[in-house]
């Protein structure tokens, strides 16, 4: 392969790729002109690498599974429910939680760019931002589920939420059977990222978390 590898998502050896050089140049210029502060960039990177991620959403789901009042308020207004619970870090505007049931399976996409509920799930995975997912899920979600090894019963309704505005969606997956009496902490371990996007389901008790 040629220098075209620059366009891929990976570092290559020790040499600086074209895109690395461009990022470094832009950051240097913007820093020298006082528009950005590298220490602020460090903090932003650290935040997204270490503090937010699907573990946040997993705790929200686990709470909803054990606390019917919280679940009701989450489905009514997810932003308010999370921010008023006192149990979670404050999230930004306009999160909508949609509930999976035996009758309806929900999936979330942004066909136009890659809008994603960062505040509760962290950074979107590459596949969520990819052309195959964005193109197919609004037309043929069952085939997309097959790519994830997931089968939804043929008579279960499918609902795909295309996040075309500044609203963000997360799926409240079904609670696995055989978890009666489990603590929130134990339940949160079963909640996968994909189960909150709708391309997966919560892990079964005893199964390794994906």
């Amino acid at each position: 392969m040629s220098h075209d590898d620059d366009d891929h998502d990976h570092d290559h050896g020790s040499h600086l790729t074209e895109v690395q050089l461009r990022v470094r140049a832009l950051e240097t210029i913007l820093t020298e002109k006082g528009y950005v502060d590298p220490a602020v960039l460090d903090q932003i990177v650290e935040h997204f690498e270490t503090r937010v991620g699907p573990h946040v959403g997993a705790r929200v789901v686990a709470r909803a599974w054990v606390d019917p009042a919280f679940k009701a308020s989450l489905l009514e207004d997810a932003t308010r429910a999370i921010n008023e619970s006192g149990a979670f870090e404050t999230i930004g505007d306009h999160l909508i939680a949609v509930e999976n049931t035996p009758q309806q399976h929900n999936m979330v996409v942004c066909t136009l760019c890659s809008c994603y509920p960062w505040d509760v799930l962290g950074l979107p995975p590459v596949w969520y931002k990819s052309a195959p997912y964005r193109s197919r899920v609004v037309m043929d979600p069952r085939s997309v589920l097959a790519d994830f090894g997931v089968t939804v019963p043929a008579d279960t309704r499918l609902r795909v939420w295309d996040s075309t505005a500044e609203t963000r969606y997360m799926v409240l997956p079904q609670r696995p059977a055989g978890t009666e009496g489990w603590s929130e902490e134990q339940l949160a371990e079963l909640v996968t990222r994909d189960s909150m996007i709708g391309t997966g389901v919560a892990a079964q008790p005893g199964a390794a978390r994906k």
Partner: peptide, 24 residues
């Protein structure tokens, strides 16, 4: 566009420059 290909144990960023771009 083909199949959706999930990545196992995907990192937050695949290269340092990606995080810098997010910060920028």
């Amino acid at each position: 566009f083909g199949k959706v290909v999930p990545e196992t144990d995907e990192p937050a960023f695949h290269a340092d420059w990606e995080g810098r771009v997010l910060g920028l």
